[in-house]
Structures are given as structure tokens and as C-alpha cells.
Amino acid sequence: MTRRLWFVTGAGRGLGRAFAEAALEQGDRVVATIRREGVLDDLTEKYGDRLVPWRLDVTDRADVFRVIDEVAATVGVPDVVVNNAGYGLVGAIEELSEQEVRAQFEVNLYGALWVSQAVLPHLRQRGSGKIVQVSTVGAVGHLPLFGAYNASKWALEGFSSALAAEVAPLGIGVHLLQLGGFATDWFGSSMAYATALPAYDETRGGIFGMPGYPTPEDVQAAGPSTDESPRVAAEALLALLDEPEAPLRKVIGTGAHEMVRMALEWRRDDYRHDPEFVWPAPA
């Protein structure tokens, strides 16, 4: 079996770590980008030089291009690039500061865009490779208080769909993972919250069960997540990569398919207000 080389951003924990570990378990090599030294020491001890931790700030375009070029020159051109680095920003649109919104897009959108741009010349020269964008069911629909996060992922899907059509003739695949909830620290340290305005207390109550935004103590008191293990998402990605004609979008996670269906139904019903619009009939 031909072993692949992976490049995974945000691999220090959560889904990124699960993707890296699943690849290593099947014998592949992984360049895993991190922000803090030592977070992958246990995997390095277990898998040796098949795991290469690499410091990277995905929001720094020059740093991204430098790292990708160094990886290609010293480790090799990746076969699979997983743009996983990201976080959630929660806040009503009125509550969000310019700095908060720009930071959300810098990581979730521009980080993936810079990595994609940086790796494409290498994949194009070789004539093969896959770019995997970690998206969400929230990129199909929307949720109050998650507007900036949803917008960053909708934008990710927009450029990735165009990219897929651009590079398919060059032998390069692009795939979007539309994920549901997984048992990571997403609602903890991977989540940022705006400063609450009282006008949205009722909305917060409907979503979080409290008038304010959750504190770290609230998150800890809630106990372990009951969502699926990130391993499920990692195994689904491995299966997707082995499909001979893998789709652009892959919905993954318990309840995720239902969420996508509901979002598309809402959009269909909204369009039905236009008498000139006819929703496509089922094939």
C-alpha cells in the first residue's frame, strides 16, 4: 500500500489531532501544525519520525508560504492537506466588535485560503493531491448568535467550491467536511464570546439556557460532551479519501444529515415566496 503524506493544520487537539492520529495509525506520515510546543509529544514518542510537528500561524500568509515550501523541500509534497485550524465566535451581530469579526475570518477563512494557495503550486507540479476543508453544517444553514462563525464557513465553502472546479482538470481534489457536533473543546477554549447586550438575553436563554454567555466555569460544570468522538470524523475522512469518485461535500456526524435537510428545506420554503422560482425536482 502506498503511504500518504498529510499536512494537518490545528493538529494540537480536537479534530485536528484525531485526523493526524488516524493517519499515523494506518502507516501514513503527518506534518502536524501546532501553536504550542510539546502538545504532540506523546504521539511523537509513539510514531517517531512519521510525525513532524511544525509551528505555524495560519493567519500569517508569508509564514504559511514559507512553511509549505520548507515542508515540500525537506519532508515532501503532501498528498492530503487538511485545513482544520479554526474556532467559534459567539455573539449577536450587534454585539460583535470589528476586532472579533476580523479575527474570526483571519483564522477560519483566510487561514484555509492561504494554505490552499501555498500548496497548490506543489500539487499542480506533481499533478495530484487532495485539499480537505473542515467545514460545518452551519455552512448550510444558520443559527442565531453564530452569525460571524456561520459567515466564515459559508465563505470557506464558496471559495472551495470554485477551487474544486478550477483544479479538478489538474488532478487535484477538493473536499468539504460538513461536520455536526463532536466531543472536542470547541465550546471551551476553542470558543470566543462577545460582550452580552441585555436585548439578546432571551435569545441566549433559548440556545444556552442562560441569559448570559457561558463562562469557563459553566462549561466545566456541564461535564464531558455527549457528542461523538472526533475519531468518527477521522474515520469518515479516511473512507472519503479512498472513494474513487469522492464528492465535494461530505456530511458527517450524528444528526448532521438532519440539520442539513432542515436548512435546505427552510431555504426551499423561503424561495417559494417567489412565484417565478421553481425548486429543482428530485432526480
Rank of each mutant, 00 (worst) to 15 (best):
A103N: 12
Y110P: 02
V167T: 11
H142T: 15
G188K: 03
M210K: 14
A112T: 04
A168D: 09
Q133K: 02
G127K: 04
I131S: 05
A199S: 12
A194W: 06
P216T: 03
G127S: 07
W114M: 05
R124A: 11
P198D: 11
L176Y: 00
A183R: 03
G173V: 04
V140N: 09
G181I: 04
Y193M: 13
Q125H: 13
H175K: 00
A118R: 02
W186K: 00
P144W: 01
A139G: 15
H122D: 05
E106G: 05
W154N: 07
L176T: 04
G180V: 12
L163Q: 08
P214K: 01
T195K: 13
A162T: 15
Q178D: 13
G173A: 15
H175L: 10
P214R: 04
V115W: 03
G188H: 02
D201Q: 13
F187G: 08
S189I: 12
L143F: 12
F182D: 10
P169G: 11
K153S: 06
V115N: 02
A162R: 09
S128T: 13
P121D: 02
E157F: 00
Q133F: 04
T136E: 01
G141E: 10
G138K: 04
L176C: 05
V134L: 09
P144M: 08
D218T: 10
G138Y: 03
A164E: 06
A168P: 01
P214E: 09
G180K: 01
L163G: 10
G138L: 13
A139P: 08
Y200R: 02
Y213R: 04
S160N: 07
P169N: 10
S135F: 02
G158C: 10
A199Y: 03
A139C: 10
G181V: 12
V140T: 14
T136L: 01
R124P: 08
W154M: 06
L123R: 00
F208G: 08
G181H: 07
N150G: 11
G158V: 08
G206F: 01
V174P: 09
L163E: 07
K153P: 06
A192Y: 03
Q117C: 07
L113V: 15
